[in-house]
Design a protein around this nucleic acid. Structure first.
Lengths: 225, 225
DNA sequence: CAAATATAATAGTAATACTATCATTTTTGA
DNA sequence: TCAAAAATGATAGTATTACTATTATATTTG
């Protein structure tokens, strides 16, 4: 799998960036280090100036790749959802049994990323952490409807719909497959955040993965008439 | 109920503000109008300067009430959760049946606020809207652990735990009552947001309230062995 | 009605979020 | 291989933000 993956490439719609960061070494350093810096100081305190200092480059050069830090965040989160979608399709593809397929899907979509399959310069473990704590900020804005029309969230929506399809395959009569799918994906990020910062309002912990909770939840819901 | 409510008062822990906004007419105008302005332009673009202009007062005067806009947001969201906790306790108190109690609890915690019971100067309908789109920003910060220790999120956590207690009352053997409670409360906010901005990934809409989805979900989970 | 307190006005600072211009370095293609 | 093109870097500049400090004025209250 490692060898196969080393040949695939995550490509992101060109309207998110001004210049494709995959097209140059500076671009790659921008992406790679922005992930580390956002993880370190948080998106709110992150600036292109600080990133420039970190990579020994100029603020103005970064502006040639991304319009502003909001667009960079959209790029990073879209990259993550694209990568996760690939993981999802890849790891469920060979399964025959519909329940097993759903179980695997929930697992992929709710688990902590702990191993980095090491293709590309991007650290998936750190990226997952910033998706958990920063993704909401990419759509909780006044521009959300305009940006949604531009297609900036289409990968995320497609991923939710893939999970929805797995849900329907297990129980055709269940009335809210989309709401359930979106609740699982967003809820998993939330539970990961809670286990790290608000331990008193969840049973999830390093010993009890959110995956366990959500797989229990989804099958209890779907196996009921 | 209207008469009873007109005599109660939401009071917020004093470490959130520098000077109690309930103690003066300027304070009340700050709170009342900050809700309207945040709703209008979003928290990200909201500044004390703009609020000062809106209420015909000076930026520096607002700084005497709140350290910064982050603390103001904590104040507003805490006010909302306190008010919601009151609604929850009040409306479930008289019920005997445990399932009915839980059903009512889920209803109170997930519904759209459409009527404003009109005590206090605070518009609860608008406040709910800003809680849906801005509450996450109050805790998705690098200061979350320090602020959590200060007790800034205790009302929210207490509310989750109240729901957890209702869940346990219905099914003592269910293993994840806290995770389920936190998922419902956060998930409801998310579904409200989706129905307004990402209609393609939820069945929720103005005709299908998130309450319906979550009540179906919670009872399917708890009535299973 | 004087003293205390609250509010307003003004000014000032460092940082942010950019844009513009020009110089320098690197890449490329004939 | 060398000139043109493209990419990057350096510097400067602007408007806004997020405050703090100081002083003036208005309001409250004992």
């Amino acid at each position: 799998m490692k060898y196969l993956l080393s040949n695939i490439r995550i490509s992101i719609k060109e309207n998110i960036y001004l210049k494709d960061p995959e097209s140059s070494s500076l671009g790659k350093r921008i992406v790679e280090n922005s992930i580390l810096l956002i993880d370190e100081i948080g998106f709110d305190l992150f600036t292109f100036k600080k990133l420039g200092t970190k990579i020994g480059s100029n603020e103005s050069s970064i502006y040639r790749y991304f319009e502003n830090k909001h667009m960079l965040l959209l790029y990073l989160t879209t990259w993550y959802w694209t990568w996760l979608e690939y993981q999802l399709v890849f790891s469920t593809n060979s399964l025959e049994d519909k329940e097993l397929k759903l179980k695997k899907a929930v697992e992929v979509l709710t688990q902590t990323t702990t191993i980095d399959s090491a293709f590309s310069h991007i650290d998936k473990v750190v990226l997952k952490r910033i998706v958990i704590s920063e993704f909401s900020k990419s759509y909780l804005t006044k521009e959300v409807d305009a940006e949604n029309k531009e297609g900036y969230f289409s990968v995320y929506k497609r991923l939710v719909n893939r999970l929805k399809d797995f849900i329907i395959d297990v129980n055709t009569t269940y009335k809210y497959p989309k709401a359930l799918a979106s609740t699982i994906i967003e809820g998993a990020m939330h539970q990961h955040y809670l286990k790290d910062h608000f331990k008193s309002i969840t049973e999830c912990s390093k010993d009890l993965a959110p995956t366990i909770f959500f797989n229990d939840l989804v099958f209890k819901i779907l196996k009921q008439n």
